[in-house]
Simulated scan of single mutants.
Amino acid sequence: MDQINKKKKKKWPWIVGSIGVLILAVVVYGIVVFKGLTDTAKEIHEPIDRELSEKREEPVAFIKKEPFSVLVLGVDEREGDKGRSDTMIVLTVNPALKSSKMVSIPRDTYTEMVGKGVQDKINHAYAFGGIEMSMDSIEGLLDIPIDYVVQVNMESFKDIVDAVGGIKVTNPLDFKVGTYTFPKGEITLDGEKALSFVRMRYEDPRGDFGRQDRQKQVIQAVMREGASLNSLVNFKSIFGAIGKNVRTNMTFDEMIDVQSKYRDAFGKVDQLYIKEGQGKMMNGVWYYMMNDQELESIKVELKEHLKL
């Protein structure tokens, strides 16, 4: 009996030691990941020269869990040219309702370029006045405050897709772009294929609206994969890809607040659709003219979601 007890006593130090090493490894790994996260957050943070929106009396207070909005700009930057914001997605986040709403704005939408005094395609606002004019013009179009902005370099977006290990999306139609074939149904995409998948427009019977849906699918898939446990192994490459290709006016402390206080709101994302407008040629240029009734309905829904 004493011999058995001795054997048990010999096992316990080894087990406790192993658990201790495991806990230490997890702590060290957590510190490394956190360090990578803070470094990346500092790298992508870019203050913008823009005062508080006139549609807000005071800044959003995350500590009070107030609803807020984010504009996602997918920008095609070209050498010697500021580029165009060909992807414009507005996200409103309401923690009390545990929901988010997402709406894609057609790139050819005819509206006022706030700060320039002319009307043009909404995606030209970025070329005319950068992020600030894009935010101001979209505020004018939707009549809601745009609190934060996330700018993504679309040409290098493929690096982010590759960093999370690829993504899965549901393709609504068969089509081919260059050497890539995209069959209908669930497909797996690497970075290069994802970029071709979101850019295709002319073979889609729904045109720009079909492309908007594919863009939202890819963004949601990247967010889903990025949040998975498997992606923690690749955190260095993920942070590296984000650091090179993403810019935002949200600070690290604000990101932490959103992650801790608004997490449940990202579990349900309702998609709003702009589809009742019509195309119109003016001076040889094609524009998308929004349907006033549909636009008003979207404004009301977003305002209610932001508790305005």
Rank of each mutant, 00 (worst) to 15 (best):
Asp136Val: 05
Ala194Lys: 02
His124Leu: 00
Pro106Ile: 08
Ser137His: 04
Ile160Trp: 02
Gly178Asn: 11
Pro183Asn: 15
Gly277Leu: 01
Val222Tyr: 07
Val285Glu: 06
Arg56Asp: 11
Pro95Thr: 08
Thr92Pro: 03
Val103Phe: 08
Val26Arg: 09
Phe252Ser: 14
Ile160Ser: 04
Ile63Ala: 11
Leu37Thr: 12
Pro106Met: 09
Tyr148Val: 13
Leu308Thr: 12
Ser100Asn: 10
Gly178Glu: 12
Gly130Glu: 03
Val269Glu: 06
Thr179Ser: 14
Gly267Met: 07
Ser18Asn: 09
Trp12Ala: 06
Val222Met: 09
Asp208Glu: 11
Asp264Trp: 00
Lys236Tyr: 13
Leu22Arg: 01
Phe157Pro: 07
Asp159Ser: 13
Asp213Gln: 14
Glu58Ser: 13
Phe34Pro: 04
Val16Glu: 01
Gly36Asp: 08
Gln271Glu: 15
Phe68Gly: 07
Pro145Lys: 05
Arg211Glu: 07
Arg224Gly: 11
Asp2Tyr: 13
Arg78Val: 15
Ile238Tyr: 06
Asp120Cys: 02
Asp159Pro: 06
Lys299Pro: 05
Glu79Met: 11
Met133Val: 11
Ser53Lys: 02
Glu66Leu: 07
Leu302Tyr: 00
Arg224Phe: 11
Gly166Asn: 15
Glu112Trp: 02
Lys116Pro: 01
Gln220Ala: 12
